[in-house]
Amino acid sequence: MKNLVILISGGGSNMAAIVRASRQQDWARRYGARVAAVVSNKAEAEGLAFAREQGIATEVLDHRQFAGREAFDARLAQIIDGYDPALVVLAGFMRILTPGFVSHFEGRLINIHPSLLPAFTGLNTHQRAIEAGCKFAGCTVHRVTAELDVGPILEQAVVPVLADDSPQSLAARVLAQEHVIYPQAVARLLSN
């Protein structure tokens, strides 16, 4: 069985979209794959409740309990390795990962970013797209590398930027597309 470990920090809507797709499309039969665990750096992350309701193992590792990034990432890697992951899926995991962590999971670590990379890496992507006068925005699934938000692109979706858009209204349209393309990208990787 190919195990997926999904990392979240909050609501976990992309994680939930992946879990739902895995069940609806019967990834266990089609790809020999399952979501084995959901790990969060925040005990109060709402997505943990959804994962538990689905019978998925959950783990919490509070980054504030560690002296630095390296110590946190080393322990996080140990927890993830306990599930023997084929893929480690970042789904709103709000931590910049150390090069050692990224290297450890090289080729198995993916992320979704709320912009059309390479444009608007980092935070506040929707505000920045509106301020730049973009006619289109979107989201990108990409492989994770040591450099933030620049790994090879796996999938993208485009939405129009409307004249009356706020960062919140644009974010909502982009998020709807994230829920479509992230499960697609994961399924494509599992099918290889």
Rank of each mutant, 00 (worst) to 15 (best):
T58C: 12
A21R: 12
H113C: 10
A67C: 02
T125H: 04
D165K: 03
C134P: 02
G107E: 14
V144Q: 03
Q65V: 01
N111S: 06
A146P: 01
V89S: 02
Q54P: 02
A157G: 12
A17G: 15
A187R: 00
Y182S: 06
V150Y: 01
K42C: 01
A157R: 12
R188Y: 05
N14R: 07
L61H: 07
T98I: 09
V88F: 05
T145Y: 00
Q127D: 14
T125S: 07
A172N: 04
P160S: 08
Q54D: 05
R69A: 11
V39A: 06
Q156C: 09
V141I: 07
A172F: 02
L76P: 10
A77D: 12
D165M: 02
G92M: 03
E147R: 07
G11H: 11
I153H: 01
T125W: 02
G12T: 10
R143E: 13
G107M: 13
A119E: 15
S103K: 15
P99L: 12
R75G: 03
I18S: 05
T145H: 00
A51M: 04
M94R: 00
R188E: 13
A187G: 03
V88Y: 08
P118M: 08
E59W: 07
A176Y: 10
I80S: 11
H179G: 05
I153A: 03
E53S: 11
V158D: 05
V144W: 04
A163N: 14
A33K: 06
R173A: 10
D164Q: 13
M94Q: 00
P85D: 10
A185E: 12
V19E: 04
D73P: 05
R143D: 12
H142T: 10
R20C: 02
A28D: 04
I110F: 06
S169N: 03
V38G: 09
L48R: 09
H113V: 09
I6A: 07
V60C: 05
D73K: 07
